[in-house]
Computed example of a mutant assay.
Amino acid sequence: MNWTDLSSVGYPTLFLGVLVGSIVPIVPTGAVVGAAAAIAMTTGHLSLPLVLLLAAAGAMVGDVVTFAVARLGSDAAVRWLARGQKPERLVAARRRFARQGWQLVVVGRLLPAGRIPVLLAAGAIAYPWRRLLPATAVACVLWAVAYALLGVLSGGLFDSPLVATFLAAVLVLLVTGVINLVARRRRERVGNRG
């Protein structure tokens, strides 16, 4: 392996970053995908189709592992995965999952902080693997495309890989912040009505 070639380091970093961030949300996976897409747009070191494929694959493997731990794992493993999640959010996800399973898998992957409660709820109610896997595949492809588009946009605006990568990360963080703000305001409005 040639460690001076960006593709030798970039592809494994992308896949592993998304995989780890999908299991333990310590890596900003959207920013990783956006940055890789920006690099693909501004250099010849990464291929955009491979970026999309590896991002979707890493996200899918991570989501399947999270679901498997929730479905097959011990109570301690589920508590470890659920740390940092508000209990009322998990309870609400369980109730809705019974009615709208596959839609929740897709939307949960696309919304910041929605994936883990949805996957834990799916595991807790023993959602069938045969339904989860196709929904997860669709969700991960849509997620990879959405965040790669932010990188493509920044790569199209700037020729510098460094500037494009920085802008992609900033765009991802801004989009995530706006989505969180809108979701919080919506929850507050619904809570005030009830």
Score class of each variant (00 low, 15 high):
V61Q: 03
V69P: 06
R96I: 00
G58F: 12
A92T: 07
F67Q: 03
G84W: 11
R89V: 09
R79P: 08
R96E: 07
L90T: 06
A93D: 03
S74I: 06
R71P: 01
R83C: 03
A55W: 13
R71N: 09
W80R: 13
P87Y: 11
E88P: 12
G58R: 15
A59P: 00
F67C: 02
L50G: 15
A76T: 12
A59N: 12
R99Y: 01
S74G: 06
A57Y: 02
G62R: 13
R99E: 09
R95Y: 03
R96C: 00
R99M: 02
Q100M: 01
R94V: 03
A70S: 13
M60E: 11
A68L: 12
A77E: 11
V61C: 05
A92H: 09
V78F: 02
R94S: 08
R89E: 03
F67S: 02
R96W: 14
V65A: 04
V65E: 04
V64E: 10
T66W: 05
R95L: 06
A70R: 06
L81Q: 01
L72G: 11
A68Q: 10
L52Y: 13
V91H: 11
L90E: 07
L90R: 08
V61G: 01
A82H: 04
L54K: 12
G62Q: 04
A57H: 01
R83Q: 14
V65H: 01
V51E: 12
L54P: 04
T66D: 12
D63M: 14
W80A: 15
A98W: 00
R83F: 09
M60F: 10
V61L: 15
A92D: 07
A98Q: 07
R83V: 06
W102F: 08
A93T: 01
L72F: 15
G84C: 10
F67R: 04
V64H: 03
R96A: 09
D75Y: 04
G101H: 01
V69M: 14
A57N: 06
A92I: 04
A93W: 03
V64G: 02
R71E: 09
A76D: 10
V65Y: 05
